[in-house]
Design a protein around this nucleic acid. Structure first.
Lengths: 223, 223, 223, 223
DNA sequence: AATGAATGAGAATTCATTCAT
DNA sequence: AATGAATGAATTCTCATTCAT
């Protein structure tokens, strides 16, 4: 009796399933969650959009919650890796920082559905957030932290404000800007906001006698 | 046939009701929404906590959605009025700005449940946000805008970054700081974050040749 | 927010379902409606009687209203076809007419629950009637009309009274007789009423040498 | 202490209440029932229309069901008395009968709301009908019966068909004609239907030289 | 007698999840 | 592995009725 359940549990963990199907489900989920919000999304609709049966979703994901969690984790992991990669092309902390902001804005601009889910729908369940905020979002905050730390070691970012606060400050502002864009219907491009945002941030976090923009005279256009 | 719906607007008229009861329901709603999240909250639990019958809630509010909306509107109105009042005690734009940040942090520190609802649960429905973001939240952003504008006229806040972006930047950072605090379980005081945050903000938004902290020489503690 | 409503039309598509289950639900519905009346019938009870889950009903029918409507349409269609068939076995209009009356009485005598629903419960909602009276009931009235028309062409049914009135006159009388029988608890057989009813009807609608009103010659103005 | 209750009880039974208020409630009930149907009518709406408080209705009527029952009884009593009066102006059974039909059609034509309630909404609850069909409707059927009996004694109405059946036959046809009129939106006058209806009825129930069925001599067995 | 705010039982319907095929 | 029909728990909201004023 309990055998069957266990078998199915083993299969689930072995993830042998068709990997493409898993992705199709996640892609459908992003779209549906983005449009309707998590609680108003129906598993059946995700299934329909992914062109699989309702039950199939449960072969790949534990439940609806799990779908959101995996979605978040999968994407966040990719995004963080991509951003870390991208930023490390620059050695200057300011450039590195500026690159991060730009990539963030571009990423969401190019994946509006993902943006909607992250910015708005992921906030839905405090229960969810309580459990997962600490997991993957932390990875992103860590990336920000690394860059700040880099700047501190370069001697150009201030040390008199707690790193944790700075990370939140930056993430929060960025997050709000993207949220506004999502809620406003994405009627304008995000990427051009890079420069002023970088300016605002750097002024705040750099050591004050060095203005972020009049740094060297190599004429580099900020990022 | 279709027994339900259809009418529903016969009663709702004489709003003599007990005014205290309305408040009790709202208070209960804040607590429950904060703890469980909007979608996981049951109207019956709010009723129980408010010590009224389930049906009574519907004498004061159109439905569960309406409860959240009114909650937001009621509180936001009060908070905005209070903040506007408080900030106008200062004529210096920097002080005014600093006062706003402090009041914001204090307000949510003193109303943790309300903070939880505002920070996390209100973000639940993009539909909701789409409708209400523009209404009352706008009032708050406007207040921020007024203070920035004041500083611009005093000649100490920069004009080269769009006001809209600055407002979002400030609100977002603030919001994230409070969210983190809520999600972290409110284990630390919020108010002490006033000074570093003000510092970060002012550096970003002030005209750069005037450092925000070396303003007067009377050694005044900021705010 | 408004969790409910809004979507509801995602599933309903592949109508492979079990066809027998649909019938079981309809059969259960007839019984329950007949016993309790539409408004006092609970969907849960129909489900219980049909031995399906509550939710299953909603895989086959849009809602409780729909259940009644389909019930009516399904049966009416069958009945009309059956009656039309049966009456066409006779070429004489009087025989044809008499056959219709007999079949009508027999049909309801043999399907007492159906009779109860048709006679009493279907009258429940004027809205329902407004929509459906015209649809399927019309089919039945049409059948009556056809037979009358046939008799007119044979030259034995009078043409001086509007067909519409005659149809109503016949249907109404028949309907009332069955209603009475249902409400009286079906304590007597219906079918024996065929002959006297046919007699009453035919006398009214046939051409006769002497119209029942020109009997005496006292020239009384009717009423 | 208990005195008050008893006093109020006495008052209730003595029907001392403001008689005009009772009528206002009944009038409102007819309108609302006619428009929405019994089950879709809200006591609160009746109260509003009658310009009394919700609770007041319960001083005059036991409950919502009672409201319908009293409505029916009150009106039926008046109508029967009026019809009996009116028909007795004529001594000839045929004229008496014709007068009844005319009064019936006129009555409902002049009280469309009442017609709607009687014809459609009263059919709603088989439970209701089971209890009240026998009470007041019977009074009306009795009146029809009296007139038929009168004609029989005059020697002009046939005796070979059970009186009960004839009463139902007449009432049913009449009822259906009015129902159709109600459901069709009352777009045409009812009263002109008096003559053809009387014609149809009288032909059926009068003694005539030639029974409509002994026309051909082929000895066909009816049906 | 009258009021109408409050009550709370009651019911339709939805939808995540299961499981026989 | 996949399916999708079936399940039934769960929850909002309505409205007849009561009762303190």
């Amino acid at each position: 009796m309990s055998t069957r359940k266990e078998v199915s549990a083993i299969r689930r963990s072995s993830h042998k399933h068709h990997p493409d199907k898993r992705q199709r489900i996640l892609d459908a989920a992003v779209k549906v969650f983005a449009q309707k919000g998590f609680f108003n999304s129906k598993v059946a609709e995700i299934a329909r959009l992914a062109d699989v049966a309702d039950g199939t979703i449960y072969l790949y994901f534990k439940n609806k919650d799990d779908l959101l969690i995996r979605l978040f984790e999968d994407k966040m992991q990719l995004v963080i890796a991509k951003f870390r990669n991208g930023t490390q092309e620059h050695s200057d902390a300011r450039e590195r920082f500026a690159k991060l902001i730009r990539m963030h804005l571009e990423e969401f601009q190019n994946n509006p559905d993902l943006a909607a889910v992250f910015q708005v729908e992921l906030r839905q369940s405090s229960r969810f957030m309580r459990e997962h905020d600490k997991v993957q979002l932390k990875g992103y905050l860590d990336l920000i932290g690394e860059i700040i730390e880099h700047g501190r070691q370069e001697g150009i970012f201030r040390r008199d404000i707690p790193l944790g606060l700075i990370k939140r400050f930056i993430f929060g502002a960025l997050d709000e800007v993207v949220s506004t864009w999502v809620l406003a219907g994405r009627h304008y491009p995000l990427e051009p906001l890079t420069e002023p945002l970088v300016e605002l941030f750097l002024r705040g976090i750099m050591i004050s006698d060095r203005s972020p923009l009049d740094i060297p005279d190599d004429g580099f256009a900020l990022v």
